[in-house]
Design a protein around this nucleic acid. Structure first.
Length: 585
RNA sequence: CGGGAUGUAGCGCAGCUUGGUUAGCGCGCCUCGUUCGGGACGAGGAGGUCGGCGGUUCGAAUCCGCCCAUCCCGACCA
């Protein structure tokens, strides 16, 4: 294909748009690939759409190769299926809802689990039909509370979503592995760096879930990785459990007056001033902090939960939320304290906590709080704390919970060293859905014994528009975009740097010859000064830039590698063969 | 949803404090000429409901009120 910039629907911007923050997003707008159409909505211009289509094509090819079959659902859907699965209400404000002229409720689909499930239910009823994997590439709608970062978090976006259907867990595991392999192949082809991290599979329990994160400081997701290769979403990080400590030498627990010490800081300061240790100063890590929250369950039930953790750590709300799902974490209000007089605000202690204690309040602790660890903690009386309280001797929690914040340098669960905290863009997510939707929508098939069994499903997503953004963010440099060849809008950006007939004619002929040779060419045949053309070529990010200009006097054209900046010269006669070789390899 | 900010030509901005000719600058766009290897220069042009509604005033981009929209931080986010 040969595209002429003189006719291309393109306007590059010399200045950064005011509403773009990320370097890749800024470059996409400046280079005329996308335009903002509204908050969280984007228009793809010709060059952007070319890149988008190449990304989409690669994803399609890899899905087809693994045996998934493409379908296409409406983006606009009736309410009923979402009512049946409970998500009409569960999805909340994030769901775009609308009514037709008769007043019937509809929605713009944020994802299509229900439709896939119902479609299979419609057509299939035998184990012989399974396994099955089907997918679509579809525009999705989510009324995000806060769209941001251009294409990365938009309200309208394109997602490839596929679903696998199997009769049993082994089948699901196999389908999952196939998707996993296909995703690896896809992201490799897209030229995207990625880390596969463990993710929380939510309340369905036990099933596998992994995210493909593209590591970049501009990513919204936080994950950890270890030198040994362990990687996990923060929600899913497992805290290594230390060995129990001997505590024969620990003196009996004793209660001390610690007036006006409702916080860890005030407690530590008081202890150092009035109850100093012999060996070292007290620190927050010596204290056991007990945080009380209310869990609110979908059935309306509410119960308090106390989380115990070392005083130098805070609760990570997202980790806690992931642990207690489907219950929702709510703050423990003043009224709740009134309802639970056994809980003394600021001075809670574990010996009054636990399902078997007088308060009956469930008490879960951080995994670091193992048998033999000794703590300073609340004495359940205002202004008093208990010292040398030993876990396993003086109190026994109801269990452990992964709710403490993760810190850079924490020990990795694989024992390979310190965890590193990094940021990434979630470009793919695979997970074993299990039977949640099949049960809700009654998707069952007959097995070989003629018995009805509920189908088990997997769900697999790739953000297509987000992948374009991730590539842009991770390849952009100070000059502009810098596309991997396989998704670039052209192979060669041919700059006509001059206006005399020989230059123009040679460039035209070269462009035509390259086109014939199967090389995609973007020909800058505009009436503009060379400086403008060079700047635009760098901004647009086509991987190979060819300049036909004053070096033509020696019979050569200049070939530049956009990514490395390397420049070389080839004779006009050799140019086509040389470039064709570069573009194919 | 909490906090902060912004809204003036296609883009980036000034003007608003202290109301008063025809609302201005740079980029981009059109015409002519000169230029032509790193975002050229000169001359002449086109392009505006100053976010909206209401109020104060002889007079509002400017002051006041309400609303809307957008962006940033946070909460949220298969």
């Amino acid at each position: 294909m040969l595209r002429r910039m003189s006719r291309l629907f393109l306007r590059t911007l010399r200045e950064d748009p005011a509403d773009a923050e990320l370097p890749g997003h800024t470059a996409l707008v400046r280079a005329g690939y996308i335009r903002r159409a509204g908050s969280g909505m984007h228009t793809w211009l010709p060059l952007g759409h070319l890149v988008y289509r190449k990304v989409e094509r690669i994803i399609q090819e890899e899905m087809d190769r693994m045996g998934a079959q493409q379908v296409h659902f409406p983006a606009l859907l009736p309410r009923e299926p979402y009512e049946a699965s409970g998500r009409w209400t569960e999805y909340g404000d994030t769901l775009f809802r609308l009514q037709d002229r008769r007043g019937n409720d509809h929605l713009l689909a944020p994802t299509h689990e229900e439709m896939f499930t119902l479609l299979v239910k419609d057509l299939y009823s035998s184990y012989k039909d399974l396994p099955l994997s089907i997918y679509q590439i579809q525009t999705k709608y989510r009324d995000e509370a806060r769209p941001r970062a251009g294409l990365l978090r938009a309200r309208e976006f394109v997602m490839k979503d596929s679903y696998s259907f199997d009769v049993d867990d082994e089948g699901l595991a196999a389908s999952y592995e196939q998707h996993r392999a296909a995703y690896i192949a896809t992201f490799d082809r897209l030229g995207l760096d990625y880390v596969i991290v463990d993710a929380m599979s939510g309340a369905m329990g036990g099933s596998r879930s992994e995210e493909f994160l593209c590591p970049t400081p501009v990513g919204e997701d936080t994950f950890v990785r270890s030198p040994g290769g362990y990687a996990a979403n923060v929600e899913a990080v497992v805290t290594p459990r230390p060995d129990p400590l001997p505590y024969d030498d620990v003196p009996p627990a004793h209660v001390e007056d610690t007036p006006d010490t409702p916080t860890i800081e005030t407690l530590v300061a008081f202890a150092n001033a009035h109850l100093p240790r012999d060996d070292r100063a007290w620190t927050a890590a010596d204290t056991l902090k007990n945080v009380v929250v209310t869990l609110s369950y979908p059935d309306g039930r509410r119960e308090p939960l106390v989380v115990g953790l070392p005083g130098d750590r805070d609760v990570d709300d997202r980790r806690l939320a992931a642990q207690v799902e489907p219950a929702v974490v709510e703050p423990f209000a003043e009224a709740d304290f009134d309802a639970h007089p056994g809980l003394v605000k600021g001075y809670m202690g574990p010996h009054a906590l636990g399902v078997d204690s007088p308060t009956g309040v469930r008490y879960l602790v951080d995994p670091r709080i193992v048998e033999g660890t000794r703590w300073v903690t609340g004495a359940n009386e205002p202004g008093r704390h208990v010292f040398d309280l030993v876990c396993g001797r003086d109190f026994t929690p109801d269990g452990t919970i992964e709710a403490a914040e993760i810190r850079d340098g924490d020990p990795a669960p694989d024992g390979s060293g310190p965890l590193e905290i990094a940021r990434g863009i979630e470009i793919g997510h695979i997970f074993q859905l299990g039977r949640k939707y099949a049960e809700a929508l009654d998707l069952r098939v007959l097995d070989e014994h003629g018995k009805l069994v509920t189908v088990t499903m997997g769900s697999y997503g790739i953000g297509v528009s987000r992948a374009v953004a991730a590539i842009a963010e991770t390849t952009v440099d100070e000059l502009g975009l810098c596309w991997p060849r396989q998704v670039a809008p052209a192979d060669v950006h041919l700059v006509v740097a001059g206006k005399d007939a020989e230059v123009v004619d040679t460039a035209e002929r070269l462009a035509t010859d390259l086109d014939v040779a199967g090389v995609d060419v973007l020909l800058d045949d505009r009436q503009a000064s060379p400086g403008v053309k060079f700047k635009d070529a760098e901004l647009l990010g086509v991987p190979t830039i060819v300049v036909v200009g004053k070096r033509l006097a020696d019979g050569v054209v200049e070939v530049r590698d956009r990514a490395t900046g390397e420049r070389s010269e080839v004779t006009v006669d050799d140019a086509v063969a040389h470039l064709a070789a570069i573009c194919v390899s």
